[in-house]
Simulated assay, not measured.
Amino acid sequence: MTEQKKRRPYSSALRQEHAQATRQKIATAARQLMIRKGYADTTMAEVAREAGVAVQTLYTSCPGGKPGLAKLVYDITLAGDARPLPQCDRPEVQAIIDEPDPVRKLARYAAMATAILRRIKPVHRVLRAAAAASPTDAGLQDMLTGIEHERLTGSRGPAEHLHAIGALRPDLPPARAAAQIYVLTSTENFEKLTEVCGWSEGEYEEWLATMLAAALLEHPHDEWLAN
């Protein structure tokens, strides 16, 4: 019994590591196929073959079938890896929380958002195109709607943090601030400014930091907003 108890944490860690690696392989294979071929022309069997897993493993890892697979791709691309670590516990978010100056705090947030948008843009574009081409695909439509609700909910974190430290404008409720963060950090805005308008990612990041400070802070630095 003692020997069995000693082995359990080790075995559990190995299982978790194996599951994480499997999810990463599946997401990488599906992402590459969807970007190359499109969502509609990417099959579950093809993804399983590319990832080197059984089709049943694919369905187990992605509840909900193909929309579930697309959500896995989106989530892992957003996070940057398959670790079961909430976004709020990641080092870049902790660095934002620990930054005492609200303007620099939003500059860090803008840098993090730009890096996420760079990763997620091709995936989001593929899924948007697929949803537009298949308006009756309820699973796909629901998945994209869910993503947007998650983005809006996630935007409440920085809004409520700014409110808690007294940096948010007093006439701006956290829910309204979250809505502004949600819109300013949309993939569509990032695409328009970097692709249509020809801005560099650095220019987008500076714009985002400036807009966030102007929209949210009670006393943004005049020198920052002048840039």
Rank of each mutant, 00 (worst) to 15 (best):
I147N: 06
A130E: 14
E150Q: 04
A129I: 08
L69F: 13
T145Y: 03
P170W: 00
V183H: 05
C197N: 09
I116W: 14
A70R: 10
P135S: 01
G146Y: 06
I120D: 13
G65D: 11
T187C: 13
P86E: 10
E160C: 09
A110S: 07
A115Y: 14
L117M: 12
N189W: 10
D75V: 03
I181A: 05
A107Q: 09
A159W: 04
D171S: 04
H124T: 12
D98I: 01
D142W: 06
S186R: 09
P84W: 08
T114F: 15
V183L: 04
I76N: 09
T153Q: 15
Y109V: 04
A131P: 12
K71M: 01
C88M: 02
A132E: 05
Y74Q: 01
W199D: 12
E150F: 00
A111L: 13
A132Y: 05
S186I: 10
D98M: 09
P173L: 11
T194C: 11
L162P: 02
G64F: 00
E160K: 04
Q87A: 02
T185C: 07
S200N: 03
A110L: 00
A115R: 07
I147S: 12
Q180R: 13
G68F: 04
A95W: 01
R83C: 10
R83M: 08
I181E: 08
L69I: 05
A110Q: 14
D137T: 09
A179M: 14
S186L: 13
A175Y: 06
P122V: 13
R125G: 05
A167H: 05
A177G: 11
A175V: 06
A130Y: 04
P102F: 14
P170D: 05
V123M: 11
V103N: 12
R176D: 07
I76E: 00
E195V: 12
D89Y: 11
R90Y: 10
S134I: 10
R119S: 10
C88G: 15
L72F: 12
I120S: 06
M143A: 05
A167P: 08
S200P: 04
P174E: 13
A179H: 04
A178I: 04
M143R: 02
D81A: 05
Q87Y: 00
L172F: 13
R83E: 08
S155A: 15
C88D: 15
G198T: 12
V103Y: 05
T145K: 03
A179C: 15
I165T: 11
C62P: 11
A164I: 02
R119Q: 02
A138F: 14
V126Y: 06
E92G: 02
G80L: 01
G146A: 12
R119A: 08
K105M: 08
M112Q: 15
A130M: 01
I181H: 09
Y182L: 00
L168F: 09
Q94Y: 14
D142S: 14
